[in-house]
Design a protein around this nucleic acid. Structure first.
Length: 672
RNA sequence: GGCGACGUAGCUCAGCUGGUUAGAGCGCACGACUCAUAAUCGUGAGGUCGAGAGUUCAAGUCUCUCUGUCGCCA
């Protein structure tokens, strides 16, 4: 914890997450990224304070709570503590502080700043009428609306169309600070990173910004921080949430303008509030602007498409944490992501990084090194003899590695930083192959040479563990433990020889057990849900694994987040059609089957379906429009050819209904 | 529609201010080795560097046009 008020403390924040639902993989990535950056700063000796939080006010939360029949406070208490803070704990996020916007201390701070900005004359009252999007919590323009499949115009991504609203609100004179902000950005080219996003902001600043609505009438939205001079209004989401970056440290005794640096890690979707609203707010309040805005992109599904619940390809963070070792998740995400572009991610990618780099390169290097030290030197790391050219090259690389890693980390190129560290690991493997210690061991005359090789490898591993520690903190320490270094910690700086000769190794369990993705089944027809939780390649040794071992299937587990992905092409193979039921009758001498006569486009088809017990009055189904698989191979049942299959949904409790559509679309319409 | 980025080996991508046979990782094939988590190490397969034109002694690397993909904005 860094609450000493030290002037050089680096404050790193992530976005203050909106607590109207459970976190998704994007939240996870952002926290791991910020955590890794923070850990690397601490590793290199810089006092660092990592702040996370939840944004708990606003209309959407009010509605979400109402929908669940609980109070807003109950909803956010549960989400903030269980869903967010709980997950961050399971992910090993080294946070120093967690701010909730419903904290009394925070709310008081917001009011102080509001009052100050008001006193400065930067807030005015005005009436406004326009289209209001509840989903986006803001007024939108007619141009932004897009016509949906149902013919209703709405904001893309919103469920409900915007409402016409007329309100009197307080406005912040943001546009007043536009020239200043542009100059500030020009003068601070490193402020927003990567530069692509800086350019986007400069682009936004070419057009007049307009002023920012910062309040809502309390009668309509009582769930917010009251405006200090007008209790009939509460403040708008951004004026509330953004201030959490300051209210947190202030609440811990920091001066409100911290003298150390402040870095904000955010997603590209909230670039504008952070790059434009926030600096102008700070300027108006007489506070200094942050030092870095680190903008990351999004996590995509493995096929490169967007991830989403509706698409069925979303990764459930809780499931991910259960199925895979924490440090493997962290490493894979950091290793894959590059700041400028969206990053595909999923189990296949994760397992590939885990097996290929963490297990084969790093874990195996540790295993083979410990094994040789055990066999050839009785488990004691020997003192090195004279270093040859090859060893000197390794020492030089080891000494320059920390600077290379930190340089890349400070450019927010974590993927390349990890690659650099892994490159050093790979070179140690190469070094072993070249040195052939197993041959040296057979020749007494080569004893000193063997000592040198074994020491170089052991110390090299120690160096690598420090270079990787920001990404895999748990395993880095475990690695050192097995080298016999106990709980000793090291600074990430040029160093060699910190492993004392004579250290007794403490070999333990395999550092990174390999996982194997279940092979794709060539089965067909069997549509029972199939867990694809990865399996350990083999039960390693006789010991139990430290990692949350990829358990074998839990057949009854309802969560099926780990389902295999199919491509859009796979899906399109299935020809789904709407079909109108012309006739429906029970089939003689079959107690389960119903015989449907359906109109599909111009043709009529007969399909048999074993759902008789749910429809005692089959004739009632006539006229319904059901969904069928039109290109299923025909099959003869009870002497009748069934040409397809009718889709239905069945609950766990055994209730069943046919899939249908709300509108009277014609039979034969394509479903996709 | 406006602005911008990108399009390099099967896949993911490096290639700074233009200059010898265009690189890495993964995957694949073959070989070596045996300390190791069937790991590691080595070698290879030969990609019109999206298309066309231009500048230049010389272009993946600069200019223009076209095309495709993506992002931001409207």
């Amino acid at each position: 914890m860094t609450q000493t008020g030290a002037n050089d403390t680096l404050f790193i924040t992530t976005a203050i997450d909106y607590a109207n639902g459970v976190p998704h993989i994007g939240h996870v990535f952002e926290k791991i990224l910020a955590d890794a950056i923070a850990r690397y700063q601490r590793l290199s000796g810089r006092p660092t304070h990592l702040l996370l939080g939840t944004d708990e006010h606003g209309e959407k939360i009010l509605k979400a709570a109402a929908a669940q029949g609980i109070t807003a406070q109950e909803l956010v208490d549960d989400l903030s503590k269980r869903a967010f803070q709980g997950l961050w704990e399971r992910l090993g996020i080294s946070l120093d502080q967690f701010v909730r916007t419903t904290d009394a201390q925070h709310q008081g701070f917001v009011q102080d700043i509001l009052q100050r900005v008001y006193d400065a004359g930067d807030i005015y009252f005005a009436e406004y009428e326009g289209l209001y999007s509840v989903g986006s919590e803001r007024y939108v323009t007619e141009k932004e609306l897009v016509e949906g499949p149902d013919g209703v115009r709405r904001v893309p991504g919103d469920k409900e169309p915007p409402e016409l609203r007329r309100e009197a609100n307080y406005f912040f004179k943001m546009e007043k600070y536009q020239p200043w902000l542009r100059e500030y950005l020009e003068a601070h080219p490193d402020l927003i990173q990567p530069t692509g996003f800086r350019n986007e902001v400069l682009e936004m600043l070419r057009e007049p910004l307009g002023d920012l609505s910062i309040s809502r009438p309390k009668e309509r939205i009582p769930w917010g921080v009251p405006i200090p001079w007008d209790p009939e209004h509460v403040t708008y989401v951004w004026f509330d949430a953004l201030l959490a970056y300051l209210s947190g440290p202030v609440g811990k005794g920091q001066p409100e303008s911290v003298t150390g640096q402040t870095w904000h890690v955010i997603g590209k979707d909230i670039l504008k509030p952070h790059a434009i609203f926030w600096p102008t707010m700070l300027k108006s309040a007489g506070l200094p602007v942050y030092d870095r805005l680190i903008v990351h992109s999004h996590i995509l599904a493995e096929d490169g498409r967007k991830m989403g619940k509706s698409l069925g390809n979303a990764i459930d963070p809780e499931q991910l944490v259960q199925d895979f070792p924490l440090d493997a998740i962290r490493y894979a995400l950091l290793r894959e992501a590059s700041m400028g572009s969206d990053t595909p991610f999923g189990e296949t990618i994760l397992v590939s990084r885990l097996n290929g780099e963490l297990a084969n390169d790093l874990g195996n290097l540790l295993a083979r090194s410990l094994s040789m030290i055990e066999k050839y030197r009785g488990g004691v790391i020997p003192a090195p003899g004279e270093l040859g050219e090859r060893e000197q090259k390794i020492v030089a690389d080891a000494q320059s590695l920390p600077e290379r890693v930190m340089g890349l980390v400070n450019d927010f190129k974590l993927n390349m930083a990890l690659d650099a560290a892994m490159g050093f690991v790979r070179d140690l493997n190469r070094y072993i192959a070249e040195s052939e210690p197993w041959k040296l061991a057979k020749d007494e005359a080569q004893a000193e040479r063997l000592d040198t090789v074994l020491y170089t490898v052991a110390e090299g591993l120690r160096v690598a563990s420090v270079a990787l520690e920001g990404a895999i903190p748990g395993k880095a320490q475990e690695l050192r433990r097995q080298l016999g270094l106990g709980e000793q910690t090291y600074v990430l700086e040029a160093a060699w020889g910190l492993t004392p000769a004579g250290t007794r190794i403490q070999a333990g369990e395999v550092l990174f057990p390999k996982l194997e993705l279940p092979e794709k089944k060539a089965e067909q027809g069997a549509d029972q849900p199939q867990s694809t939780a990865p399996k350990a390649t083999k039960p390693q040794g006789a010991k139990t694994m430290t990692d949350p071992a990829p358990t074998q299937d839990t057949p009854t587990a309802p969560a099926e987040n780990a389902q295999e992905f199919i491509t859009i092409d796979d899906f399109l193979k299935v020809d789904l059609r709407l079909a109108e039921v012309l006739a429906c009758e029970p089939l003689e001498n079959a107690d389960k089957l119903l015989k449907f006569t359906l109109k599909v486009g111009d043709e009529e088809r007969v399909i048999l379906s074993g759902i008789r017990k749910w429809f005692p009055e089959p004739a009632d189904l006539v006229g319904k429009r059901v969904v069928i698989v039109a290109n299923l191979a025909p099959r003869k049942m009870r002497g009748i050819m069934s040409q397809g299959m009718i889709l239905s949904a069945e609950s766990e409790s055994g209730e069943l209904d046919l899939l249908t559509v709300g509108k009277a679309l014609p039979g034969g319409s394509q479903v996709r």
